[in-house]
Design a protein around this nucleic acid. Structure first.
Lengths: 237, 237
DNA sequence: ATAATAGTGTCTGTGAGACAATATGGA
DNA sequence: TCCATATTGTCTCACAGACACTATTAT
């Protein structure tokens, strides 16, 4: 914070935010990519991002929220800061700083938002299989890898994956979500015991059926006390 | 990354790095603070930090390393990115981004470096008890709290605290380090089992004595394969 | 009734902590 | 020898996963 130059002599740092939005289709993670509408890498699929707007955004998290709203119409997704990528090498325009956020959204919410959006503007954003992204511009490959790694890691001890489910869900649905994120099958009894002790869920009166030919499962939702707080937690453990 | 304005129209973002350097004196964590030599908060004790120098620094981590070298003379401490604080509210000069790094250094290394430094320049940096810092300027309180929380958290499952010990140390010394960081006593047998399975340490031939009237303890050091790698790991688990 | 999945009770092995015995150097 | 701490062996308890049994709905 102490330096021989004033900030106005350092206008050459490019300040941006990028968002790794993850969602789950069946058992696969998908990442939201947007087609770039200007150089560099015009036309390429890349993470949604943009410059910080100091006049408009209270902080970088607000910039990320705004970017996501502009590209998808989503209003209040789960958002968590992943980290910051910086340096001369990552952007051909010059020395830059990119604050990266990870967003988790239920597939239905995202598709609804994108569909509403497509009625007014040409859609610029689309979901891509996280396992087959090809090469992305800038250092977006590393950002995606970091986001997936972070989500996997936190899912081992927290209730993070609930953000990939809708407002109400059954325990078997949630378990399949965990299994998809972690990439391995989980023990049913242990999973239920873990959810029980986390004490984040509460049952909703009225079982779901889905017309399936078997015993219906209890619906759950996130407790009110945790609903907002989950977004605030920075590394629960 | 796509925006209606060019970066040169956004010169108002102040880009800085701040470093939370932690070390251990006996059983207490201490934080390095530097006395600010200019406004805002001139004269106040604050985290060592400074503007990013795009001409000089390859990336923000290099800025942090440079800042630490300038203030302390330390050359290659363990450094890990904590996160980024941003927004209009945190700095009276305007909308700013601070990339925060956490450094872990053995007390002896730091004191040696500071002592060497004090022979050429007036010392501007000093260690302060982490538990009694008082109020720091900017959002440095939150940064310190975040750093301590991160170190505590990672110490539960990794070998992170070895960076607070010197090149060679005994298992009882390392255990006391863990206990100081975690703030709770650890089971001796479990601790040794954990260190064994992490497989990060190797014994050094020749026991330490310290002239104590009891059985000397085996000296250990970090395995060569891990010596550099530890700094690279971003969230081991 | 049967199929299919939800939900629960019980057993067992693994691993962490408690306890304690042994090892070793200095006074 | 005695003291203090290092190091190692063993026991026990808690918990995670395996297994299996019961519950509930649609066909």
């Amino acid at each position: 914070m102490s330096d021989s130059a004033t900030p106005s002599l350092h206008p050459s740092v490019i300040c941006t935010v990028d968002v790794v939005l993850l969602t789950l289709r069946d058992t696969r993670l998908e990442v939201l990519l947007a087609q770039r509408d200007r150089a560099p890498f015009e036309g390429a699929w890349a993470l949604p991002g943009g410059f910080v707007h100091p006049q408009e955004d209270a902080d970088a998290a607000a910039s990320a929220t705004r970017v996501l709203r502009e590209k998808t119409g989503l209003e209040a997704p789960y958002l968590e800061q992943l980290g910051t990528y910086s340096g001369l090498a990552r952007d051909p325009r010059g020395w830059s700083i990119a604050v990266v956020y990870c967003a988790l959204v239920p597939l239905e919410d995202l598709e609804q938002a994108l569909h509403r959006r497509s009625t007014t503007r040409p859609s610029v954003a689309r979901l891509h299989d996280a396992a087959n992204l090809g090469r992305l511009p800038f250092d977006h490959d590393a950002m995606v890898a970091g986001a997936i790694e972070r989500v996997r890691s936190k899912s081992q001890y927290s209730s993070l994956p609930v953000h990939l489910c809708g407002a109400e869900f059954t325990l078997p649905q949630l378990q399949r979500t965990y299994e998809a994120v972690l990439g391995e099958p989980l023990n049913k009894v242990s999973f239920r015991r873990k959810m029980e002790e986390l004490n984040v869920l509460e049952p909703v009166e009225g079982a779901m059926q889905g017309g399936a030919a078997h015993r219906p499962a209890q619906l759950y939702r996130v407790r009110e006390a945790y609903r907002q707080r989950l977004s605030m937690l920075e590394r629960g453990l």
